[in-house]
């Protein structure tokens, strides 16, 4: 009997280990290269950018009966709580197809300095959820005549100076908690309407609703406080990453996105899947009300 128990426990442990959220690695289709001496864009010789859509499975998100039923049930529960608090319920299209609580995302990167000289690099992580993309330049408030223009707000994550010796390869990671915070900030800035400087400088891992964040307008001359009560359970996660790589020497950035998902949201074949089987999100480029996007 003791041996049977031991056997059951051991097989149970093996089974449990097999059921944890195994990560999926989505390799970037291309590396990002900056060569200040031979720049692709002479106006920005130290900058290169890349965009990567996460390969969400169209059939699962739009046709899987259990997933859609669960989505309806969750939205109903959220709306019941909102109505109990005398707040407006969410419409179906305000409840994201890809939620914050369904994924843990990490970006692993490696920078190789191809020159003999030491240099400095920065990685800016921006991106989009199903609703909006974040473009820092869109938040620059036009300066009054004679005044100096404000700098753009920080990226959703990154912008840390990284010293790289000549011919050195450095590796690093944007952790799951950092990208979760970035996804929360994206919602706070866009659907919450909060000033991105304020959003990026505070940690919001414990908020329950976008209304928990102190409202600081993008343009103090034109404050437009949010009216949408958006519970954390209805926050969206990233569907796209926009990476910018800034370097003062000839360097290459390679990266891989690591995803742990609670259900099979990503297509089995990842970026190798036929385009028709991938969910095509069309997030709008967010421009704060009252501001014009830069020309």
């Amino acid at each position: 009997m003791q041996h049977r128990g031991l056997l059951l426990v051991t097989f149970g442990a093996l089974g449990a280990a097999g059921c944890t959220q195994d990560p999926v690695y989505v390799p970037a289709p291309d590396q990002i290269e900056v060569d200040p001496e031979n720049p692709l864009d002479p106006e920005n010789p130290n900058l290169a950018t890349a965009t990567m859509d996460l390969p969400y499975d169209l059939a699962y998100l739009t046709e899987d009966a259990a997933y859609l039923r669960d989505r309806v049930d969750r939205l109903r529960a959220i709306n019941a709580a909102l109505e109990a608090a005398s707040q407006a319920p969410l419409a179906d299209d305000q409840y994201p197809l890809v939620r914050l609580d369904q994924l843990e995302i990490e970006i692993e990167w490696a920078i190789e300095n191809l020159s003999d000289d030491p240099g400095q690099a920065r990685i800016h992580v921006n991106g989009a959820n199903p609703y909006f993309s974040y473009v820092p330049a869109n938040f620059i408030v036009p300066a009054a005549p004679g005044d100096e223009e404000d700098p753009p707000p920080p990226p959703l994550s990154g912008d840390i100076p990284i010293d790289v010796a000549g011919r050195q390869v450095l590796t690093g990671v944007f952790r799951e908690d950092q990208l979760r915070e970035a996804a929360i900030d994206l919602e706070i800035v866009t659907r919450g309407g909060v000033n991105p400087f304020a959003a990026m400088l505070s940690i919001h891992e414990d908020i329950e609703n976008v209304l928990d964040v102190p409202y600081i307008p993008v343009d103090p001359e034109n404050p437009m406080p949010p009216t949408l009560s958006l519970p954390i359970d209805a926050f969206a996660h990233f569907v796209r990453f926009d990476l910018s790589f800034v370097a003062d020497q000839h360097m290459v950035l390679t990266y891989t996105i690591r995803v742990r998902e609670t259900e099979p949201l990503l297509h089995d074949e990842l970026l190798d899947a036929p385009a028709a089987e991938l969910m095509l999100f069309m997030p709008a480029e967010y421009v704060p009300p009252g501001l014009m996007p830069p020309a």
Binding site: D22, P23, Y25, E108, W109, A110, V169, T171, V173, T254, Y255, T256, R258
Partner: peptide, 8 residues
């Protein structure tokens, strides 16, 4: 790398 230090 990347990734680095990942287990399977």
């Amino acid at each position: 790398a990347p990734p680095e230090g990942e287990w399977f």
